[in-house]
């Protein structure tokens, strides 16, 4: 027959009911824990911003960690909840490989976004209007050489 794909076949279910439930429970706890860690880091960044001399490097580091944690969360959602981890390798690859395009997609867009800021600051500096009195001024306007 031309489509011997039976609809019964979805993902290969190796595990028993109990095994499945414990896996879902573990993943749920994992996702919650990662989210809580993200929140804690978010609050730390918040505190650091309130401090007098926030270390740009540390803030970037923390933000990087949050990004990695988010990717981990995404991995568990796709792999366990969406059962992609249980599919045959062919399917996994056709999903994952095209997503690689995001690397250049994100990289080129953000790179050019940053470049736009630098070019503007250099050739068309805007005098920024302070919105509130009394806040410390920190601006990289019109000072950076073209890099």
């Amino acid at each position: 027959m031309e489509h011997s794909t039976t609809s019964e076949v979805t993902f290969t279910q190796h595990h028993s009911d109990a095994e499945f439930r414990s896996r879902v429970r573990k993943t749920t706890i994992l996702l919650s824990v990662i989210t809580i860690i993200e929140l804690i880091i978010g609050l730390v960044i918040y505190k650091m911003h309130k401090g007098d001399h926030p270390s740009e490097f540390l803030i970037m580091l923390f933000k990087g960690v949050v990004c990695i944690l988010t990717l981990a969360k995404a991995f568990y959602i796709v792999s366990v909840f969406m059962h992609l981890g249980d599919e045959v390798r062919n399917l996994i690859m056709t999903i994952i490989v095209p997503l690689m395009l995001f690397v250049w997609f994100i990289g080129a867009f953000l790179w050019d976004g940053g470049s736009y800021r630098k070019l503007r600051n250099r050739y068309h500096p805007v005098i920024e209007t302070p919105a509130r009195q009394g806040e410390h001024e920190k601006s990289d306007t019109a000072t950076h050489p073209l890099d």
Binding site: G42, I45, Y46, H49, F102, F105, I106, F109, L110, D112, G113, G114, Y116, R117, R120, N121, E128, K138, S139, D140, T141
Partner: peptide, 22 residues
């Protein structure tokens, strides 16, 4: 969604400063 979020990132990267979500 990726295009939306990346657009957001691009505009944010091209701004000198951005509101603090907190």
């Amino acid at each position: 969604f990726g295009a939306f979020l990346i657009s957001y990132g691009t505009v944010r990267f091209s701004a000198n400063s951005w509101p603090d979500p907190n």
